Amino acid sequence: MSEPAATSNHHAEAVKELMLQHDAFSKLLGLQVDEVGPGYCRLHFTVRPDMVNGFGALHGGVTFSAADSAFAFACNSHGRQSVGLTVTIDYLEAGKVGDLITVEAREESLKHKVGVYQVRATTQSGAVLALFKGTAYRTSNEIL
């Protein structure tokens, strides 16, 4: 790995650690961040009984929240505080208790003030649960 890439990954990791110190909601959901890098995040969680709706399906709010967290880690990974400007989500399948859900956020575009991200939530068998698109406003505040 080249020096700039290693430095960028180290910076993204430091931002993630700082964010997680204060992110009670991601902890409540049991989100485990597997990997971060510039404009990227992959995390996972296991669907618990308290995460399902009245039909036994993974509650859409949990799916949305996990995607939103991956989006947050990805868009803040460059070290400038970023906030969601607009997001959309398409629910394609429903998860169930015991499913291992992987959520992966990828940067599609990064400009001075705006970043665009695609987030995909899948089950352990590869079924796509949801597709999330987020646009982030990049403030001038440095995180570290």
Rank of each mutant, 00 (worst) to 15 (best):
F71R: 00
V62M: 13
L131E: 14
D68S: 08
L85Q: 14
G37D: 12
G54I: 07
R120G: 06
R138W: 00
A57N: 14
N53I: 05
G56A: 01
A67I: 02
A136D: 01
A130H: 08
G39H: 03
A74N: 02
S77T: 05
E104I: 07
L100P: 10
A66Y: 00
E35Y: 04
K113R: 15
I101V: 15
P49C: 00
Y91F: 15
L43G: 00
A105V: 01
A72L: 02
S65P: 04
D99F: 14
N76Q: 04
E108K: 11
G60R: 04
S65G: 05
G39K: 03
V119P: 05
G79N: 05
V128W: 09
A130C: 11
L129M: 07
G56M: 00
G56T: 01
R138M: 08
F64M: 05
Y117Q: 02
T139P: 05
H78F: 10
L129Q: 06
M51L: 07
G115Q: 08
T46A: 10
H59F: 12
G39L: 03
H78S: 13
T135K: 08
H59I: 07
T102H: 15
A72E: 01
V52T: 08
A130K: 05
G98D: 06
G134F: 06
T63R: 04
V33E: 01
V116N: 10
A94W: 10
L100K: 15
A74C: 03
S69V: 06
V52N: 03
A74W: 00
T102D: 13
L131S: 14
S65N: 04
K133L: 11
K96V: 14
H44Q: 12
H112C: 09
N76H: 03
A57Y: 12
V128C: 13
S82N: 02
K96P: 10
L58W: 05
L92V: 09
S69L: 03
R106F: 08
V33C: 02
G95W: 08
T102N: 13
E108H: 09
S65I: 03
A70K: 00
R80L: 14
T102V: 14
A67M: 12
H59T: 08
G37S: 14
P38S: 14
T139R: 07
I101L: 09
S109R: 15
V103H: 01
L43T: 00
E107W: 05
R80N: 12
C75Y: 01
Q118T: 15
P49E: 04
L85G: 14
L131V: 15
V52F: 03
S69Y: 03
A127R: 15
K133H: 13
R106I: 10
G79Q: 04
R80C: 11
M51G: 02
E108Y: 06
G61K: 00
L85T: 11
K133F: 10
D50C: 01
M51Q: 04
L43M: 07
A136S: 07
A105M: 01
G61S: 02
T123G: 15
S77G: 08
E107G: 10
I89V: 15
Q81V: 12
A105S: 05
D34T: 09
P38I: 12
M51R: 00
E35S: 08
D68T: 03
V116T: 12
I101R: 07
N53H: 04
G95M: 10
I101H: 09
G37M: 05
Q124S: 15
A121S: 09
I101W: 06
Y91N: 11
C41I: 01
A136Y: 00
L85F: 13
V97M: 09
E107I: 06
F45P: 06
